[in-house]
Amino acid sequence: MIRRREKDALELETRRKIYRCITKFPGLHERELAKKLEMPLSTLVYHLHYLEKRDLIMAKEDGRYTRYYPTKKIGARAKEIMSLLRQKMPRRIIMFLLLHPNAYHREICEEVDIAPSTTSFHLKKLVETNIAKKVTIGKETMYVINEPEAVSDLLITYKESFLDSAVDRFADTWLKFGPQYIKKKTEKKDEEKGRFL
């Protein structure tokens, strides 16, 4: 049930489009929105209710129509979360953890397909910023998102810009030059070779 709800929250594109339209043109009513977004009214109404329930937008009756407005500007905490959501790898890890709470470190590595050391680097950032928390069980470590609802709401409003994608690629490229990363990569290759021999 929880997983389904979180999966719903991650249906980003449609809701993001609606949210963006409302922030750009506050005060539009349902029919105007449906026309602007070229979306069936029933689908739009469903998503509007969802966004309203999550306090991302608010509805106001003006006697004839119900008009929609964005509720709030982004606060300090949300900005902190957003800065990580704007980076490709942390975003992928967060999305995976939202859909698979209590995932093990190795499961996250497999999903995002990056070296364990790089995964640990990003997970450390998530733990330090209190977005995720880690639970150690025996030799393995599990991770879970602290405020899944708030994070998934921000994912809805997330918008990638040129600078963000450039920053992602830049950081990914340069951080791969680290001796730690190269060492781990060599170890991984040796491990794979050993598996075949």
């Binding site: 800065s83 704007r86 980076q87 600078l163 920053v167 830049f170 950081a171 340069w174 951080l175 030059f177």
Partner: peptide, 13 residues
């Protein structure tokens, strides 16, 4: 881009 990256990742490199 490098300044934004170092600021966001707080990375000395």
């Amino acid at each position: 881009v490098s300044t934004v990256s170092s600021y966001r990742l707080r990375n000395t490199k």
